[in-house]
Amino acid sequence: METKNIMIAGVGGQGSLLASKLLGHLLLEQGFDVKVSEVHGMSQRGGSVVTYVRYGDKVASPIIDQGQADAIVSFELLEAARWLAFLKPGGRVVTNIQQIDPMPVITGAAQYPENLVEKMTAAGARVDTIDCLSLAEEAGNVKAVNLVLLGRLSHYFDFPETVWQEAIEACVPPKFLDVNKKAFALGQGA
């Protein structure tokens, strides 16, 4: 099988590491070779962060390069647009519609771009949007945005539901399990 590439984009602190951990666990259990490349350290402090998840028969590079991502999964709208160049032609963008102003916008040095979904679509991406924050709130914790997003992403895989549930149980601390499972289900249903 040709290597598949998923990028997880977001703002430092949004929980993308749990999302990549869960995906990595799931793909390993499915018997794939897997590589997951993360960002630690300074960029985590509210900066633009991206995690690369690659799987297939044999994966060499730990990173995804321009024009190679089958999907960009984003916790934030501007971050989805930022990594668009990494998407394969016709690749899929699954993004939270939440907008978080970066510091240049807060200071007035720049404007938050408008109509990003339309612009990404016009550039050839198949864009799927979801309001993760509202659904996470509905699930009982605004921090469960990552599981809502994964729930939505699960539509694009052929794995049975039990595989996802097992991965959630393996990666989420027991005391947050209920909220996270609910968030995942809400993401699936959205």
Binding site: G47, A109, P113, L116, A123, A125
Partner: peptide
């Protein structure tokens, strides 16, 4: 050969790390 990626034809604001 090197794969190509599409970019939006506008400069997006950067998101440098910040104090929490």
């Amino acid at each position: 050969p090197v794969p190509d990626g599409k970019v939006l034809d506008e400069t997006l604001p950067g998101r440098p790390p910040v104090m929490c």
